[in-house]
Design a protein around this nucleic acid. Structure first.
Lengths: 197, 197
DNA sequence: GTCTATAGAGTGATAGAC
DNA sequence: GTCTATCACTCTATAGAC
């Protein structure tokens, strides 16, 4: 284990423990044991336990935003852009399930300043989908009443769905992403506005 | 505060703290402070912190199962039974949001024996919906490929949806439940089997 | 049924040697 | 960059008075 990689090793051990046991139930000693070093050595790489959690949350959000942005950047047709966005959201959540689970459950462990930074990133992420919905509605391709509610619906349905589909383990990631693509687009184009009157 | 109610007081203070801060981040001292007693007095009412968490999880699951069962017991038509089940699921999750949040996030805090008991109850609950799906499919009213996947989809979509709908706070509980009823029934009766081939 | 006092263990974090 | 040793603190839980 080369010195340059220890920071990464600690992070991935922490991701595993935080996702399995939770942030508060995981001790620095356990992370050290899993990384093959003494607990004092953790503090050479990270300022504190909270700092380690924040780094995990921050890089996960940054990677998610970059991943979804990249997937739609060269596409102009709004339906295709939404399909790509949904597909990459589902892919990311299935491929990096542990980090995403932590991102959705351990926000209470960070300082108010760090919390605000993560919430800002989450808002930025949601805006990608809200812009797509607005774009599609203005072009007359999508039918929707409330852009915020629809964006929350899309994201939570995809996130939750990604979890239980994977749990069943019968379908490939591509297959799952495709099912959601069709499901969301059907909903957005269907003759019932959402939410209904 | 009468003696007979202290056990309940402690429980509801714990529900509030566990849902806001998480189980491991909440200390017995905080629960005592919120209940207006000293921390040692908690142990007269509950054996341990874990015992308190388990009581919360157990009563929530028992109440949920009884509530949904009661809502369908006098109805024979399978579509109406499913509508009633979805409606009561959404109602329960919105009316007792804190307890349900704990039930979905703090299962890692209990002992293996207690964990098994809760999981058994959750399986029992899911079976209510799986039986309804099977019943409807056999009667030719619903179209479905995989009963387990469909039941997970219904329950997670309703649970997640209940959370963000309430967060928006623009719609009444009845309105939300109705929207989900229609949404689920449309999905179950629609011409596309789920999951698609 | 609630109190004060404390045991006993573990925690996050730091100091300083190597 | 990692170590040993330890500080200062908090935690869950118990003992025993009232």
């Amino acid at each position: 284990m080369a010195p340059q990689n220890m920071k990464q090793t600690i992070k991935s051990v922490a991701i595993d423990l935080f996702s399995r046991k939770g942030y508060f139930a995981t001790s620095i000693s356990e992370i050290a044991r899993g990384s093959g070093i003494q607990k004092a050595s953790i503090y050479y790489h990270y300022e504190s336990k909270e700092d380690l959690l924040f780094h995990i949350l921050k890089t996960t959000m940054d990677d998610l935003i970059a991943y979804v942005r990249r997937s739609i950047q060269d596409v102009t047709d709004v339906e295709t852009r939404m399909r790509r966005a949904v597909r990459s959201h589902v892919h990311f959540h299935l491929e990096r399930q542990k980090e995403n689970f932590i991102s959705n459950s351990e926000l209470r462990g960070i300082t108010p300043e760090h919390y605000q930074m993560i919430v800002d990133k989450r808002d930025e992420y949601e805006r990608i989908f809200q812009d797509l919905i607005r774009e599609g509605a203005e072009a007359g391709v999508f039918l929707t009443k409330d852009i915020k509610i629809v964006s929350y619906a899309i994201l939570t349905i995809c996130t939750a769905g990604a979890a239980w589909y994977n749990y069943q383990g019968r379908l490939s990631i591509d297959r799952i992403a495709m099912i959601y693509e069709d499901f969301i687009i059907d909903g957005l184009k269907g003759k019932h506005p959402f939410p209904p009157e």
